[in-house]
């Protein structure tokens, strides 16, 4: 691939929640800024820009990633998934989202998109995740409102509902 020079914008293309997107970015532009301000997908939030809070967590080619620690140009050609892609086509909440609503797993909602992306990945890979595994997985996220209890309960409920749904 050719060297992308600083101070100039280069076209970046990838798939966002199943649809092709493209935009212009300097090499240094963070994926968070690209998603939010170039593409207009503002569901992914910025909390710390040093990889600790987890609010910006997305999936890149299936793997969880802090989008604040990822350059937009690194996402070239990738399959990027964000919170905007979780709900069903007719905007019905996914079982995970619905569990958050039923269990009051969010208050201000700012950290929630990253947490949802993390749990979505966990429950796909480990549908029978225990509460302890869920807690450990969530330790990569900071929430300041809920005290975490309702989030853990929501995640446990979502796991149960996904398991039951898949057996049905």
């Amino acid at each position: 691939m050719p060297r992308l020079t600083s101070g100039r914008r280069h076209t970046v293309r990838f798939t966002l929640n199943g649809r092709p997107v493209s935009g212009e970015a300097e090499p240094r532009m963070l994926l968070t800024d690209f998603l939010r301000h170039v593409i207009g997908a503002t569901g992914t939030h910025v909390g710390c820009e040093h990889g600790v809070c987890g609010a910006c967590t997305v999936r890149i080619d299936g793997a969880l990633a802090r989008s604040c620690l990822t350059l937009a140009v690194q996402a070239e050609g990738a399959d990027v998934r964000t919170v905007e892609g979780l709900a069903g086509a007719d905007d019905t909440l996914s079982p995970l989202q619905e569990a958050f609503r039923q269990n009051f797993g969010l208050q201000c909602g700012f950290c929630t998109p990253g947490i949802l992306m993390s749990l979505d990945a966990l429950l796909q890979e480990t549908p029978d995740a225990s509460e302890e595994e869920i807690r450990e997985h969530l330790s990569g996220h900071l929430c300041r409102c809920t005290g975490y209890g309702p989030i853990v309960r929501a995640a446990v409920a979502a796991a149960r509902s996904l398991r039951e749904g898949s057996h049905a």
């Binding site: 691939m1 050719p2 060297r3 992308l4 020079t5 600083s6 101070g7 300097e26 090499p27 240094r28 963070l30 800024d33 820009e49 040093h50 350059l71 140009v73 690194q74 070239e76």
Partner: peptide, 13 residues
């Protein structure tokens, strides 16, 4: 908290 400018090369080999 934005990086200073740099060039970027994605190496193929």
């Amino acid at each position: 908290m934005k990086p200073a400018p740099f060039d970027y090369l994605k190496a193929d080999s």
